[in-house]
Design a protein around this nucleic acid. Structure first.
Lengths: 396, 396
DNA sequence: CAATCTTTCTCCACTCACAGGACAAAGGCG
DNA sequence: CGCCTTTGTCCTGTGAGTGGAGAAAGATTG
């Protein structure tokens, strides 16, 4: 079926659409309070939006002592698809125009299988979501990939952990398959946008969003906008040196943060500890599962396993060292910690905090909250939906 | 005397003023090519600017095959004062509206003497410049201080190397004394703005500007705008840890970059080397001057002194380590090295480059120039003039 | 030297965005 | 039932901005 063909015709309309997206249904009067336009001009623009079908007027709100107002809201049948491709799993979600998640699927997967295989799976998941009746079709899709992206073209570039993706025209290919506009970004940037839209970073202009999953990355938001850097690799902090002459890293250097702490590094360290008999807890889990992941370490730590706690604390300290440098440099108003290892929770957070508050300048840390992300696995897909809606809700 | 009372009345006028500032005199037709306005509207705005006296029409340009055009230029009697307060010296310069330096004074001074003493000296220098006939008065002044600044208010905050300045209302005080609008910023940010306006960073949107003087700082430019951070301390990279458990630093931590390399650290290391008899060259300079500074090390290195070269190389390597992290994080399109130690020149630059290219991600360094600043001691004062002119050439 | 072409600049009529006030619609409250 | 409040619509005036028709001033050419 044919969907959302219209786009806002001017900046006013774009502004109104974003207000309705972020603030929910509103009367004309309420919109007028937020938008600094005369009521007449506002009425004209709202009428035009109604004509396009992007917004609808349904029902009357309760009276507040005078004439009842019409409810103006974004078209209730608009649907966005949010896709978050991780190193080892995919998240796919459907949202409405207000970016509320209506349905969410998660499946294990290996990015290294390449774009064709992955997209097959993504499309199958999208179809499954559609089959539940949540969506008749998609008006736009946002997609995050675990590596640098040439943003304007929507093409991954030189992604270290996803060979076979380099230069693959993700945006174009997916747009063809889905029959709707698509925007592509780094998964970490999308997580940052998600937390900014609906999570802990609402109303913060400058913040950092550290995502610790299989690898480590950092979303950078400056003045409300994501900073992607000259080649799209901004925020790639996994290969900052955390330990001089430390462990060898896949990138060829030594002592990279990612080599010392990340989902992958943690799993490896846990395996080592289990095999060396340092932790009965981990050893028993190894036997049961036939392998160890960060989740096992989290569970062991929760059960009081000293080795696991030590691993987490040391990782947090390493991460904190790097973050301390970034905080001194960037002077953010907030640091958000998220990603797969959020399960490590407050042990990790405490270690990071200790290190940052100890090592960064007092002026930079004085009023600096360091908190866990609020949205968990939803952050990425909400960010993806936000990305495409920002695009579609801008003048063509 | 009363000076420049007018400000641009709208964004068009502001745009035109900035075009004239950055591109020099122009005809109406040439302006029209750059500004996407109809000739008629353009003529209206230019006329209004002429009325305010901010711009003047003087003389006719040579014909290019048709009617000769009028030269439109910024009022030739406009004067900006650029002040760059360093840790150990002050630079004061006068520029015209095109930000060309008409006169420049430099004097040794110690910031720690406090704002009152320093401003006395600054005002005396400004008066001296004025006495030469370069300026009848100042239409605005920009001033850089070596520490974090609460930018909107123009007040230094918690400056580590300049006790006595904390909370001093620099902007207001200087505005009173000079009788013109004043803007205050961190000296490093001004250096970045200077290199952006007239130096190596022209036409680069995202870049880092590392200033190595008595201390070390970094100007951050994102999308053409200086990023100052939440509390104004962004770019304060001197206290990022460069060496784990390294030298004690004045800030209370160990291994800070500044403790291992900076003008002050270099002087200290040179003194140590001279006293231990490691370098005859440095020892003789110590005897002659009664002390050593970074300049002596630069001269000794130029004369082939191995110890000095080693000191510079090691410092460059340390600095490069930190910059490598920042490059991975920020992914700039250019890195500029400047400040007092630019005299260390290519030895330093080579060491920094080696380290950055070795340690940062290939995608981030692939096309990344790392260069010395072009403006030397002028960078700060030009940046200061640029700061205030940006302010005055914006709608009131 | 006149006729013609170029370039620059000015003038004028027309369009459109927008503000702001008058007014109508719709409800609450005494 | 009259009066007040809130919401929404209509209409007119204003000012920004466009685009075209020339006028001004010089170069070029037969």
């Amino acid at each position: 079926m044919r969907r959302m063909t219209a786009r806002p015709a001017n900046a006013h309309q774009a502004r109104l659409l974003k207000l309705l997206r972020d603030g929910g249904p509103n009367s004309r009067a309420q919109l007028g309070d937020q938008v600094d336009l005369s009521r007449s001009k506002l009425a004209v623009e709202v009428d035009r939006l109604l004509e396009t079908g992007l917004v609808v007027a349904d029902g009357l709100a309760a009276s507040r002592g005078g004439r009842r107002s019409h409810n103006i809201r974004l078209a209730p049948n608009l649907r966005f698809l949010g896709v978050d491709i991780g190193a080892t799993s995919v998240d796919v979600a459907v949202t409405n125009a207000e970016l509320e998640v209506l349905g969410h699927l998660n499946q294990p997967m290996d990015v290294r299988e390449g774009p064709v295989a992955v997209f097959e799976q993504v499309l199958a998941m999208a179809a499954k979501l559609r089959a539940t009746g949540l969506a008749e079709g998609f008006d736009g899709a946002g997609i995050g990939v675990p590596g640098p992206v040439r943003f304007p073209e929507g093409v991954p570039v030189a992604p270290p952990i996803m060979p076979g993706w380099d230069g693959f025209p993700v945006r174009e290919a997916l747009s063809q398959e889905l029959g709707c506009p698509v925007m592509v970004d780094n998964d970490v940037n999308l997580m940052a946008m998600g937390e900014q839209h609906a999570g802990v970073a609402r109303s913060v202009g400058d913040f950092l969003c550290i995502k610790i999953g299989t690898g480590i990355g950092c979303g950078i938001v400056v003045g409300g906008e994501v900073h992607r850097g000259t080649t799209g690799s901004a925020g790639d902090i996994g290969h900052i040196q955390a330990v001089p002459d430390g462990r060898p890293c896949a990138c060829g250097n030594r002592g990279c943060l990612e080599a010392h702490f990340s989902g992958a590094a943690l799993a490896r360290d846990a395996l080592e500890a289990a095999q060396q008999g340092l932790s009965a807890e981990l050893a028993s889990r190894l036997e049961t599962n036939g392998g160890l992941t960060a989740v096992d370490v989290a569970a062991a730590a929760a059960a009081g396993d000293a080795t696991s706690l030590d691993l987490i604390r040391e990782g947090g300290t390493r991460t904190g060292q790097v973050i301390a440098g970034l905080v001194s440099f960037f002077n953010p108003g907030l640091v958000v910690i998220g990603g797969g290892v959020t399960g490590l929770g407050h042990t990790l957070l405490a270690a990071i905090r200790t290190q940052v508050y100890r090592q960064s300048l007092p002026l930079a840390t004085g009023n600096l909250p360091i908190v866990l992300g609020e949205l968990g696995p939803n952050a990425g897909v909400i960010g993806a939906a936000r990305l495409i809606s920002d695009h579609l809700f801008s003048p063509a």
